[in-house]
Every structure is written in C-alpha cells, then in structure tokens.
Amino acid sequence: MDTKSIVYIALFAALTAALALFPPISFAGLALPPITAQSLGVMLAGALAGSKRGGLALLLFVVLVAVGLPLLSGGRGGFGIFAGASGGFVLAWPISAFVIGWLLERAPQAGFVKMAAIIAFGGIVVMYAIGIPWMALVANLPLTKAVTIMLAYVPGDLVKVVLATFIARGVRRAYPTL
C-alpha cells in the first residue's frame, strides 16, 4: 500500500474521532445509543477516501476504540462498547464506509440525489442491518422492538446524509486530485 493511502486511512480515522468532540444528543434518559456526528465521519470516509481506504480507516478507528482509547462521543471506549447496545453500529462502520465507497466508485458521475441515495444506503441501511440485530441480541429484545426503537434515529441520520452529500460534492469539486 502506498504512503498516500496510509496517510488517508489515518486521516479519516482521526476525522471520525474528532467528530466525537461535537456533543452527542442523548435521549430517552441516555438509555439508547446517542445521536452523534461520528457517523458523518463514516459517510465522508466512504465518499471521499473510497472503498478500500475508507473501510480501512474505520477499521483502524474501531481497533483504536477496542484497545481502550476514549474516541467515541462522550469519551467512551474499550471493549465494553461491543457488549453494549451501540456495539453493532460501531462494528458496522467499516462495512458502511466500504459499501459507500464501492458504490460511488461505480457511479463516478452520480448527481446529488443518486449520491445521497448511495450514502443513505451505506450509512443507514447497512449500518442498521448490522446494528439492530446486535442490539436485539445484547439486550435480549425481540427484533421488531429494536427496529421500532431505531426508527427514532432515522431523521437525524437523514440530516447527516444530506450534509455528507453536500460536503463530499463540494470537496470533490474543489479538490479534483482526490
């Protein structure tokens, strides 16, 4: 792997970590995974760094969290995360970033709507498909209950999809050598 890829992997892992500095929005008395800006990092990693670099960037991030660095919003970190309700979502991040990058590489001329749809697929559908069963398993919940709970997160995630699309399109235009 060339040096530029290594630096980009480190950069997008750091970006996801830095986005934890935005205060998370917790609701239901902190009982559920918080709404954080961090999934924006996942979407941008896929959309700007591409499938391989973006996926590896988030894999690196997950490893750093697992070894105990408090890089998740609210200063959370350590293996305990994966035993908790948000564990599956965090583990889904590398796959989400990879899927977004992979689909966008196949649609380089995608317009705003198509790009937003791709980011929404990777950043919402793929992420929930892994995170929700994980949450149901950890908390011993019926799957339907877990799905109902997660519906509350969709509006926030849609806002992030639109933001990520705006930013990714602008950056690609301003930085064509990406």
Partner: peptide, 21 residues
C-alpha cells in the same frame, strides 16, 4: 498486512486528532 505500516497509520491517526480540532 505490513505491521510497520499499520503502526505508522496508528501513530498518524493519534497525531491527527488534535490537529483536526
């Protein structure tokens, strides 16, 4: 997988966090 390159990526990532802030 080249462990030295993984090590470089880890150190760079940790250094980048305060720089991004």
């Amino acid at each position: 997988v080249n462990p030295a390159k993984v090590g470089l990526a880890i150190s760079l990532a940790l250094r980048f966090i305060p720089v991004l802030a």
